[in-house]
Write a protein that binds this DNA or RNA. Structure first.
Lengths: 361, 361
DNA sequence: CTGTTAGCGCGTTCAC
DNA sequence: GTGAACGCGCTAACAG
């Protein structure tokens, strides 16, 4: 049904630059210029070429261009799969959205790599070293892809780290202030009168987990509490298993005596299921226990009670990373780029309150 | 810090096939064969070549290969942006995850296009006609990208429709049974004794919206109820504004007298915020009003009350679409592919119950 | 301002 | 089983 008759040997159809040149009565190089540097060609011929291209429905072949100029227009988003995937954590989709929008507005395409097997690492390196991708945005806390003796860092293309600070390795990083935000959140609980805490941990050793727990301890230190004021639970489940994590944590909490008056959760998912499980076991929130989450998931506003949380600027995080990558690709930013910190904000809702003097901790 | 010294004119470094050939003492054509058709070359020379490639850290140049072969290894996921984006709807991230995993396992890369401006349509067509992408998975209910007189359908590459049935246009489609699932859900409400319904609509005219509302009407017909048994609300908000949609719908519901005993929501987001708003205005769920959602969002299990919903097989939908695309790309499926329907299931939780005889409808 | 020329790196004939 | 030669479609030198 296609109206065009040109055929390359593999069956793909479409006019080439030669065809446009012939129809316009010029050389292919002139066509090339007319399309890339419209200023550097006679207006009259430019019109003829444009008309010819339009008439033929000419679309440049990207592979040929990429080969010739030695650059592609593709940016890779390397996700630390298979655990932290699209939608697995509340904020990842929003981060990716911000990243994708900004990358596309910059005229680049975004490709995803979502695996973390050795084969996947190899694939990422093939893309980077083989010239398929022009830059890589590494999301999350997994190690940089390595295969054999080859590491992503040696590919000679820009790398930006998103959600984890890798500035120590010389990689421009965009992160939120996990630690300070958590500190602020816990100080809020302390200001309300809480002195005993239950911490629902994310995956042990995970960057966010470590930072956030540190923030909690920081807050305790500020008011002279020791780390014995907090009971830590969890660590065996990943951030993608947040709901289950909260359920298990709630059961552990129920077995405690006395029970801490405040629960601090590493993620909203965990906070939500913690609350749901606690309430259905007769624990009132926030009367018996105040609960605070981390992420700022939209659904938190409609939970019972509405969830107090630390809201991450998810889309903004992605957009900032994209902008740094674009600057790097344009050569606009050559000097080492400092770490960009976009702060999370305490979002006060109704799951935190003064500790109940009836049960007290 | 790179150990390799080759330089092309633009600064990218890396050994070419020529370098491997020289080191192995063979011709480039032999290297090419050894890598692509290991069987068609002497075992001894194959080893020498493999060793040389390994030593040099040779990685083939994708652009050159694509140009020569006339095919790329990239599949495009075209999202109907900017409204339905990563994470905007509860299930899109999971659908994309299923798609991405399966596409990658098939040895292809996945690229995203997320805009829906004319410029975006043009870009998608450039990717398709310019040979950058090998196939396109179109998500959601937006029209196929068109620019000028050119439509995606004429690009001569495989197209698969995901989440919307386009089989009438000859496009293989993967969908869930929106209509039948909703019918089943409403029949469940009817079996509980409900005879008056409040419907929270999605975006007017949207494929899912139309199908789901039709399913509701189907159920009414089954038991001889007229469409006057349902009050429809909404339609001005998109699926990405589900929470707001539910809030507004709840306020409309509160103003009704008498109030229907069951609320049927086009999406979980809307159902969750409907419940939250209704409850904080003194309406008990499910005692005063039963509520049913659509999607099967994980968070629904932890709402108060836990949400009865129609669970979409989100990841599976994505994976099926990927598999069809892979078959099309392999030439394994040439005949028209029938529409694949992966059913949504009624997930009974606690937001639906027998209508309260106190208030009755 | 425009045409001519020369490859980018690879896969694939076609001889040997 | 292997090598030599050619060209995929495009852009960047260099002349004119």
């Amino acid at each position: 049904m296609s109206m065009r008759g040109w055929r390359t040997r593999d069956g793909r159809s479409g006019p080439r630059m030669t065809d446009v040149a012939r129809l316009a009565g010029v050389a292919t190089s002139t066509v090339s210029r007319a399309l890339a540097n419209p200023g550097r060609v006679n207006e009259e011929t430019r019109r003829r070429i444009a008309a010819a291209a339009e008439q033929l429905g000419y679309i440049p072949n990207a592979a040929a261009r990429n080969l010739r100029v030695g650059k592609s227009t593709i940016v890779l988003a390397a996700l630390p799969g298979p655990s932290m995937i699209f939608g697995a954590s509340q904020i990842i989709p929003a981060v990716l959205q911000g990243l994708a929008s900004a990358v596309e507005e910059g005229g680049f395409d975004l490709i995803f790599s979502n695996r973390n097997s050795p084969a996947a690492a190899r694939h990422v390196l093939d893309l980077a070293f083989g010239g398929t991708v022009r830059g890589v945005v590494v999301l999350g806390a997994a190690d940089l892809p390595v295969y054999g003796s080859r590491s992503l860092g040696d590919a000679g293309i820009p790398i930006v780290s998103l959600l984890m600070d890798r500035s120590a390795a010389g990689i421009p990083s965009v992160v939120t202030n996990d630690r300070e935000a958590m500190r602020e959140g816990v100080l809020h609980l302390i200001a309300l009168g809480h002195r005993s805490f239950f911490y629902v941990a994310g995956q042990a050793g995970n960057y966010h987990e470590v930072e956030r727990f540190s923030g909690l301890l920081d807050a305790l230190t500020v008011v002279g509490l020791s780390d014995r004021a907090v009971i830590r639970h969890g660590g065996h489940l990943g951030f993608n298993e947040g709901f289950q994590n909260g359920v298990e944590a709630a059961h552990a909490y129920l077995g405690l005596a006395p029970r801490p008056t405040a629960a601090v959760c590493c993620a909203d998912d965990a906070a939500i299921s913690f609350i749901g499980t606690a309430r259905s076991n007769g624990v009132a929130v926030p009367e018996d226990v105040s609960v605070i989450g981390f992420d700022g998931a939209a659904v938190g506003a409609f939970c019972v009670p509405p969830l107090t949380t630390l809201e991450q600027p998810a889309e903004d995080l992605g957009a900032r990373a994209a902008r740094i990558m674009l600057d790097l690709l344009d050569g606009a930013a050559t000097a080492p780029v400092p770490t960009t910190t976009v702060p999370s904000r305490l979002l006060l809702r109704a799951s935190t309150a003064t500790p109940n003097t009836r049960s007290g901790g």
